[in-house]
């Protein structure tokens, strides 16, 4: 008898929940991390660039990211390789995207070779930890190919937000979001 009463009560509680469900109340809750957790994960997060991601930069700060190689000979890049790289790029960034220190200092083209571009190479499976590029006052200090990648990634966030399949975006977004609260 007691068992039957319990069963009836149990059934009534489920009915009540179903009525709430019909009113649109969620049946599953997801626990959010404490305020300190995103801080930790944001500052410690790192990401792996899955495929070779080379970056070509011109003197206006335009940038192309792709997996092709570009041949280099004493600081000059092969023009035909550059053309192919630009045509088959995975991502293209407009003028001014690459900070000036990553752009070429000179621009001269002769006999199929040019100094009007600079080329940065990032191998597949390269690990990037954005927090390594923050200095102690919380400002970005971007150097090297990985630093350039982060500079472009943050441009990408400004334009497209946190999606679109650009590797590492969510890690970087969490840091940028966090820094905004400082």
């Amino acid at each position: 008898m007691v068992e039957q009463d319990n069963k009836k009560e149990f059934q009534e509680r489920r009915r009540q929940l179903l009525r709430l469900g019909a009113a649109g109340v969620p049946m599953v809750l997801t626990l959010k991390a404490s305020a300190a957790q995103p801080v930790h994960s944001a500052l410690d997060c790192s990401f792996v660039i899955p495929t070779t991601s080379n970056i070509l930069v011109d003197s206006d700060g335009r940038a192309w990211i792709g997996s092709r190689g570009v041949r280099e000979k004493s600081g000059e890049l092969k023009v035909s390789d550059i053309d192919k790289f630009r045509q088959q790029a995975d991502f293209v960034f407009p003028n001014g995207s690459a900070p000036s220190k990553f752009r070429p200092d000179t621009c001269d083209t002769q006999k199929g070779w040019t100094t009007c571009y600079r080329f940065y190479e990032i191998d597949s499976n390269t690990n990037i930890t954005p927090a390594d590029y923050l200095n102690s006052s919380g400002n970005w200090s971007l150097t090297g190919a990985k630093g350039l990648y982060l500079a472009l990634a943050s441009q990408y966030i400004d334009t497209y937000g946190n999606d679109g399949g650009f590797p590492g975006i969510s890690c970087l977004t969490s840091i940028l979001t966090y820094l905004e609260y400082q």
Binding site: L29, L31, K32, A33, S34, A36, Q37, H40, S41
Partner: peptide
């Protein structure tokens, strides 16, 4: 339980 988890700085870690 909910409140304790929400107060934890490393539960997810």
């Amino acid at each position: 339980a909910m409140q304790l988890i929400a107060s934890s700085p490393n539960y997810q870690v």
